[in-house]
Design a protein around this nucleic acid. Structure first.
Lengths: 337, 337
DNA sequence: TGTTAGGGTGGTAACGGTTCCAGTTTCGTA
DNA sequence: TACGAAACTGGAACCGTTACCACCCTAACA
């Protein structure tokens, strides 16, 4: 089986030097029209395609973007990945995918590998525990964009996320305005930005409406596992259980729902529910869930655009923090008290 | 900012030649114990990590595996991707992700890019329309594994999929044995292997139970779009509408469900339903759906193991066709007629 | 004592691009 | 017509590895 053609084969066939071929390939530097045509012909004839590795070795960086997501099992991240891949393709960027499974150790490993491959940029949902490694990226001039979350210590990194505070406030207000005074929240871990921001929004709404905050109704849960269910069960076991609940931890919505069904809690009869989730099943289950829909397309688009721009150094150095509004969808899982 | 250390820096610091370093790195060829130690020290001290691009250029192929999936929006593929990424990591393989969106043109493009990157192997869900390109992979000694589906013309490629015929037969039999004689099926396109195989299983069950096949009850639908809903609506509009339905097209389950809900078709009262799907929401909706659960972990594991083995040429050339059984889960969307 | 085998080592040519630089046209203008 | 500038071209040095090969050395064997 013949070996694939190289740039030298093309040059030989076109009767020019490799420099010329390289120039027509990359549009760097001038090439006379006739020669350009010959080169193009030769490329066509030999079905030549430049080897990415060679290019990368000589340039020192690549057009590959590392995408480091928490977990493709979560429809939110899966859809995000889908859009990122599509948007990246439109910009001739390749996506090298890794997942952290929310495990800092895996994240560290993944970041190291990504560095070995000299990725040209990164898009990721950081666990929050590998500050040094993310800083190293910056030190190596590899642009990074955080999507969905951020890390306080890494305030030099671009971020694309939804308006978490506002969204959580809207969700909470929705319940308060329907007469619920005992409103609980299941948030993400409080060492994540989404966790604290959404709790902040929740508290803000409470303050606005003059409702006292009850410690026991603010319950963080990890992104993995089924802890969300326990946490809700505990809230419901209180003397004065909540009549309204905001599930602000996307990864726990499913288990919470499952637990409520098993416990035969009527929704919205016994409990009014707002969830942070916009997956395609939300309106299929009974009752259809009132939800905060995250504009995944926008998150993906902005992320890709941002790394892309940074990779071509077309942006002032100041970190960008893009906040896109989320949509509040009133369906049937909430009712007046 | 200092440049990252290269193999030469390591060699210099350890007082050996680059050859020695390369040898300890790859375990190729002998190295005396003391020198090995020095090299290891130097690597540690310089935080040296070999550049993947250089290695790849020199060796001609890489440890990157292209993963070409239809669509990460479909939970089935998303979960598959999640497992593949995890399994690949366990074997020190990297995953370069692309999606076809079931579009042959995008698939072709993706395959070309993957070739440029000299991926060491491929795992994919082929659209069925780029036979020459997949053959080219084989010609270049790049092992490919089809997962979930296969392509008839490409019988030299390894395949990992579920027992489609059997699973569809089981699902159909389940309905027939509950007295349903008018059983419909929404399959994938009939130019896909999953489409034809599942229809074949359906027909087999019909034959076994002596039920005549009605052309109008066998309705393929594309993997994209909402055609599945129309197709079901059409069946239900027949003089003798089906009382049982197998939705064997994973991508159409959601829209079918949505349509049935809108049309106020009671399940299983008006229609008994079996779906090919095993996503986490299947048991959350009312009623919980009787389903064929695809063992995604197994599909992923076998696929990765297969490429991995092929990449190290640890397998006889004959194509492998791995069929894993699917699980039939009886829940509450089916009932006796 | 002379071979020989083979472990251990270093030099160096690939691998396939990009890029700098110097040299050669070509062209426009004084 | 001459001259400088700009367009164009090709040579060759990298980029960081791997792998082949030649070599040295020691130990074992005849």
């Amino acid at each position: 089986m013949k070996k694939a053609a190289t740039i030298r084969d093309v040059a030989a066939r076109a009767g020019v030097s490799v420099s010329v071929v390289s120039r027509v390939l990359n549009g760097t530097g001038p090439v006379a029209a006739p020669k350009r045509a010959q080169v193009l012909d030769a490329i066509e004839a030999l079905a030549y395609r430049p080897r990415a590795a060679a290019r990368q070795l000589s340039q020192g960086h690549s057009d590959t973007v590392g995408l480091l997501l928490a977990d493709l099992t979560n429809p939110f991240f899966a859809r995000l990945a889908d859009r990122v891949v599509a948007d990246a393709r439109a910009r001739d960027l390749q996506i090298l995918l890794m997942t952290t499974q929310e495990d800092p150790h895996l994240e560290a490993q993944a970041l190291d590998t990504l560095l070995d491959r000299s990725v040209g940029g990164m898009i990721g949902t950081p666990t929050g525990h590998n500050v040094e490694r993310w800083e190293k990226l910056a030190a190596l001039d590899i642009p990074a964009v955080f999507v969905d979350r951020t890390v306080a210590e890494l305030d030099q990194v671009d971020v694309v996320s939804i308006e978490n505070v506002q969204s959580a406030a809207t969700a909470t207000r929705h319940l308060l305005d329907r007469g619920h005074t005992r409103v609980g929240i299941v948030s993400g871990p409080l060492d994540t930005s989404t966790g604290v921001e959404r709790v902040r929004g929740y508290e803000q709404a409470l303050r606005e409406r003059g409702v006292a905050r009850d410690e026991r109704l603010v319950r963080p849960a990890p992104f993995r596992g089924d802890r969300g269910a326990d946490v809700v069960a505990e809230m419901l076991a209180l003397d004065e259980p909540p009549t309204g609940l905001v599930v602000a931890n996307t990864a726990q919505v499913r288990v919470v729902l499952k637990m409520l069904a098993q416990a035969r809690i009527a929704i919205p009869g016994d409990l009014s529910l707002v969830v942070f989730d916009d997956n395609p099943w939300t309106d299929l289950i009974r009752p259809p869930l009132t939800a905060v829909r995250q504009p995944i397309d926008m998150l993906a688009l902005h992320s890709v655009e941002l790394v892309h721009a940074r990779m071509r150094q077309k942006l002032p150095p100041a970190p960008r923090r893009i906040r896109v509004p989320a949509e509040f969808l009133e369906r049937s899982s909430t009712t007046h008290l």
